[in-house]
């Protein structure tokens, strides 16, 4: 049986990747943000996961509006980083945790989820940036295989927070029933507060972000029962991406230990943060 060794929540802002590409991570603007991930990287180095489940949304790179799946599970053996318009980034391909992915897909469908199952698809900054923040940028290959889960947060209707939470429960079942001894870390990504479009563009909500980071561990019920509209109002239209952290949180114990919290405002136009959780 594979094992969940921890859950990480993190922003996935594209300009974080750009800062890394340009070697700006130690400049005064970016250093305080990246410093907050030192602990996260140490935690990863110490706990040595074999597989990273990454919950994220595509941002108009691997999926168009012609066909919008609510949830997608990747079952590929390999995922190329998406070219988001700036040309290919110099990071290695991601190797898929193929067997675990199919096992998870089976469990989802058995348990009345309706995923799209994808095996020819690229991964955009929603996955790339969290992987770089947690694992650094490897020369040749990533130290883990990945199980990507895409959540539609672009075109309404987006899934409910409760549905994301419920998917976390199945994810946990799938990992714990997987025949193997893999150590699995779950990355819930996106947010925190930001809004890119409309007259309220640039909206940030530090109070809400800090509330999220300080209560997602001990009082997730508050967040999973909140309406989608309330996410948009509180965190901004793109800040509603935070629902994806609930897949991670739903997969963890109700009692978790907070190993680390980090918040930085703003990264680009976004409230940026990270949390590291272990089951108690």
């Amino acid at each position: 049986m594979a094992e969940i060794i921890g859950g990480i929540g993190t922003s996935h802002v594209p300009s974080i990747g750009v800062a890394l590409d340009k070697g700006l991570d130690q400049t005064p603007v970016w250093k305080p943000f990246f410093d907050g991930y030192d602990y996260t990287k140490e935690w990863i180095a110490e706990h040595k996961p074999d597989v990273a489940v990454v919950v994220f949304n595509d941002h108009g790179n691997a999926m168009f509006l012609d066909r919008v799946p609510t949830f997608t599970v990747g079952v590929a053996d390999r995922y190329k980083p998406a070219d988001e318009g700036w040309g290919p980034r110099d990071i290695p391909d991601f190797i898929g945790a193929e067997d675990m992915s199919w096992h998870f897909a089976d469990k989802l469908v058995e348990n009345h989820f309706d995923p799209m199952i994808a095996r020819e698809i690229t991964v955009d900054h929603g996955l790339q940036v969290p992987m770089e923040l947690c694992f650094g940028r490897p020369k040749d290959c990533w130290p883990v295989t990945i199980l990507p889960i895409w959540v539609n947060t672009v075109q309404y209707p987006i899934p409910t927070p409760q549905r994301c939470w419920d998917m976390g429960k199945i994810l946990r079942d799938a990992i714990e029933s997987f025949p193997g001894d893999e150590r699995v870390v779950i990355l819930g990504t996106g947010g925190l507060s930001h809004q890119l479009q409309g007259a309220r563009a640039g909206f940030l909500n530090e109070a809400a972000d800090r509330d999220w980071l300080s209560t997602i561990a001990r009082d997730p019920d508050k967040w999973r029962s909140m309406r989608r509209e309330d996410y948009v109002e509180k965190f901004g239209s793109e800040g509603a991406e935070l629902i994806m952290w609930l897949v991670m949180r739903g997969a963890m114990n109700s009692d978790v230990t907070v190993k680390h919290t980090h918040y930085h405002l703003p990264a680009s136009m976004t409230g940026a943060g990270c949390i590291v959780l272990e089951n108690t």
Binding site: Q197, R228, E229
Partner: peptide
């Protein structure tokens, strides 16, 4: 989510915008 109160200055990318 189409029948709900709109959020001020916040266009949701719903069917109308998507079309």
């Amino acid at each position: 989510m189409s029948n709900n109160t709109p959020i001020a200055q916040t266009p949701l990318f719903d069917r109308k915008a998507s079309i």
